[in-house]
Each structure stands twice: as structure tokens, then as C-alpha cells.
Amino acid sequence: MTDGPPLIVTRPEPGNAATVERAKKLGFDARAMPLFAARALDWSPPAAADFDALLLTSAFAARLAGRGLAELAALPVYAVGAATARAAEAAGLTVAMTGSSGAQRLLDDMTSENIHNILWLCGSDRSEFDARGAMITALPCYAVDPAPVSAEWDALIAAPAILLAHSARAAQRISQLVGGARAHLSLVAISPAAAAVAGDGWRDLAIAGQPDDVAILAQARALWHKGAK
């Protein structure tokens, strides 16, 4: 596949390097083009006893929360995907459930188990979802800021390429940077929400079967075999 269009990976580091490495093993001509950079925020952990569970919708929460995370170690973690679960375990937390269909489905599963008082360790920018009657306390511990666009970006998107959007914010920024000249470009979104903000006019617009790296790359490979070159 390396003789075809490049696969443009836009997620922040350290995930970008991991996706590029995984994509190259699959035969893609993968290019690292991170459009965001994550950083830690100052925050103070509340009393763990005031909550039933800890909700993590990004691996950045576990990676960047710092020492305050230890004070929440008694709470069972509900992680939105496998990468987030691994980051939580690496930080010394106990994962009670790993979701496979996005934050809303995970929250639905939590409330079905009568988990109603939830601490959501999150980013400063976050998606909204239906709380389903639960009491959710959002506590930002990290921020993901737009990063400067690489000098290679314009040349890459001027020709056929497959772009990966690992979040709704990524899909939105890709859409803004590409503009209306996108009929030669294919986009793979990690979720229906990300696909929705990407807009129309792409050569192909596909959605990963699950919100994780393996699924988004599998969908990119399916596009390749469909003829996205």
C-alpha cells in the first residue's frame, strides 16, 4: 500500500507516533501531522468518598492528571476505550469497565448499574452527552490545544490522501484546514459525532466500527481496498 496515497495521522502525541507505527506495519505510507498538543492543567482532587465511580473519556486524563490521581485510586474506573483503560491501569487505577461504543453508551451502561454520582476527569474542551439522570461532576485536568500546521500539510492534502480524525475536534479542524477542495480526499472518523462535524464533499467519509486505533485503521484499510487511491 505504500505506493498509494499517504495516510495522514492528525492526533496529538504520544498517540500519533503509536498510530503511525501501527499503520506502517499494515503497509500504509503513514505521515505524522499532529494538529493538537496536550498539556496538563492545575487541578485539585475532590474527596473520592463523594463519588461512585471515575469516568475517563480520554487516555490524556490518566497520563496528565499527575499526583492528584492517587487520591482517586479507590474509585472504580469506567474507561471509554482500550487505550484509555491501559493508561488508567498504568497510572495505578482499577478499571471496572471498558467501553467500545463511545462515551454515551458507556454512561448508559454505568447508569444501568445504578452508578449515579460520577466524577468525570476530562479535558477543558469536551463533548456533551445525555447524563441519563446521573450526577456528573466534570473536572478538567488537561487541555488539548491547536498545534501549528506542518509545512508539508498543504502539499499532502493537494493530492489524494486518507486522513484520520481521532476526535470530533480533529474532524472539525481538518474540515476547516481543507476547506471546500476535498473531493479527492478520504476521511476516517473515530465516531459518528466526529463524522457529523466533518461535513460533506469528501471522496469517502467512513466511521470506525469502534472508538479505537485498531478500528480506525481497519476502516482506512477498507477504504484502500475500495479504491481510495
Rank of each mutant, 00 (worst) to 15 (best):
M1W: 08
P6G: 05
L7M: 10
I8L: 15
R11A: 03
G15Q: 11
G15I: 04
A17V: 08
E21C: 08
R22Q: 12
R22A: 15
R22S: 06
A23V: 07
K24W: 11
K24R: 15
K25P: 00
L26C: 03
G27H: 12
F28G: 00
D29S: 14
D29V: 02
A30D: 02
R31F: 08
A32Y: 03
M33W: 06
M33A: 06
R39H: 14
L41Y: 05
S44C: 07
P45K: 03
A48N: 07
D50M: 10
D50S: 14
D50C: 07
D52W: 11
A53P: 02
L55F: 12
L55G: 02
L56D: 04
L56A: 08
S58P: 01
A62M: 08
L64S: 02
G68A: 09
E71V: 07
E71Y: 09
L72D: 01
A73V: 10
P76C: 06
A83R: 12
R86A: 15
E89V: 07
E89D: 01
E89K: 04
A90E: 15
A91C: 10
G92K: 09
G92Y: 12
L93R: 02
T94M: 08
T98R: 14
G102Y: 13
G102F: 12
D108A: 15
D109M: 12
M110W: 08
T111F: 12
I118G: 05
G123F: 01
E128R: 14
E128C: 02
F129T: 01
D130M: 12
D130P: 09
A131P: 05
R132L: 14
A134I: 04
M135V: 08
I136M: 10
I136N: 07
T137F: 13
T137N: 13
A143R: 13
P146M: 01
P146L: 03
A147N: 04
V149H: 08
V149M: 07
A151V: 14
A155N: 11
I157H: 00
I157P: 00
A159L: 06
A161I: 00
I162N: 00
A165S: 12
A168G: 10
A168E: 07
Q172S: 13
R173W: 11
I174G: 04
S175N: 12
V178W: 03
G180A: 11
A181D: 13
L187V: 10
L187C: 07
V188I: 13
A196Y: 02
V197H: 05
G199T: 07
D200I: 04
D200F: 06
G201L: 11
W202N: 00
D204K: 13
D204C: 11
L205T: 01
P211Q: 05
P211M: 09
V214K: 11
V214R: 13
L217F: 09
A222F: 06
H225A: 13
H225S: 11
H225T: 05
K226Q: 15
A228W: 00
K229S: 10
